[in-house]
């Protein structure tokens, strides 16, 4: 018997074994899928970017990919026209005036509420939480008419607020806070709940009251969760067109960037090329926000608190 039979090796990394092959193939498939998805996701954005640097005549005559081959005919016309045509400075200011409070208010409220839902005992806690989660399923559009009616009744319209000397953005702050709260509370309370209970008990014995525990232990440990929530909420408010259009509608002095940009395009879709430039311009702020906060996305900030 001199026939050598390949004996199955116990090593999982043995070359050319079925296991090795499937590992390799699995890795390969994963990479192809991930890269493919990324490319598919980026193609429209890249197309938009290239289009924004093309002349309007070319845009309507040929696809954006033709611009990638010589002769190159890029231009900044769209950008200069866009700046000339719109009052971008005012709307940028408005966007910040809307987005920053409309981020801070719901995130702050949500943090307090989430702490209560996660770590305090009060009657009906689970039912209230359930109702709150249920609110996640309510379509935004359903709320427009009743909320607008109430806002008008209460005098929360840009015109009236300006007349009495209050910021005209209040209706948007309230609306965005309301729309953002259910998700924010849900996300944060899940995060808080995952904090080890030993920390809370230890703090209790150490003599820390509820507020001390919240500010000195819960908040510092929740920076990653809060940072991601801030990014979500800020991007949602910044990119929002519908809510702004409904509650502060036609008032140009209050309109955020999104509303102004939409108005660049005429009713028949003319000046479409300006929108490409405008879209890229309006992406700058969200990009800065994301890139500056993303380092807080580090996991494992809890490492070392419990267990050896």
């Amino acid at each position: 018997m001199t026939v050598a039979v390949a004996s199955p090796t116990s090593s999982t990394t043995a070359r050319f074994s079925p296991r090795w092959l499937s590992d390799r193939l699995g890795g390969l498939v994963l990479h192809v899928v991930v890269i493919g998805l990324t490319v598919a996701w980026m193609v429209p954005t890249i197309g938009l970017l290239i289009t924004s640097f093309r002349q309007s005549a070319d845009i309507s005559n040929s696809g954006w990919w033709t611009a990638l081959s010589p002769p190159f005919k890029f231009t900044l016309d769209n950008y200069s026209q866009m700046f000339a045509a719109s009052n971008l400075g005012q709307s940028l200011f408005n966007s910040f005036m809307i987005s920053i409070p409309a981020t801070i208010i719901p995130v702050t409220l949500a943090a307090f509420a989430a702490y209560a839902f996660a770590w305090m005992k009060f009657p009906g806690r689970d039912w209230i939480f359930l109702a709150l989660v249920g609110l996640l399923a309510v379509p935004l559009q359903l709320t427009f008419i009743p909320v607008t009616t109430e806002f008008v009744k209460l005098g929360l319209t840009p015109q009236h607020l300006t007349a009495i000397g209050l910021p005209p953005f209040i209706p948007l702050w309230l609306a965005h806070a309301g729309y953002g709260l259910p998700f924010s509370i849900y996300l944060l309370s899940n995060f808080f709940r995952a904090l080890p209970s030993d920390l809370f008990e230890s703090a209790e014995i150490d003599g820390a009251g509820t507020l001390t525990v919240f500010f000195r232990i819960v908040l510092p440990l929740s920076v990653p969760a809060i940072a991601s929530l801030v990014i979500f909420q800020f991007l949602w408010v910044w990119n929002d067109l519908l809510v702004a259009l409904i509650y502060v509608g036609g008032v140009a002095t209050v309109a955020p960037v999104t509303v102004t940009l939409v108005n660049l395009v005429g009713s028949y879709g003319q000046n479409y090329q300006l929108l490409t430039a405008a879209a890229f311009f309006s992406m700058i702020v969200p990009l800065v926000v994301f890139l500056s906060l993303q380092r807080y996305f580090v996991r494992g900030i809890l490492a070392g608190s419990v267990k050896g």
């Binding site: 080890p196 030993d198 703090a203 014995i205 440990l221 608190s305 419990v306």
Partner: peptide, 29 residues
Amino acid sequence: AAKDRDIAMVFQSYALYPHMSVYDNMAFP
């Protein structure tokens, strides 16, 4: 209340505050 019982407890998991230095952990109570 727990804090007024004049006791101190060492937990199985240690329950150290992960974002505080060793000094601050001990100074906290």
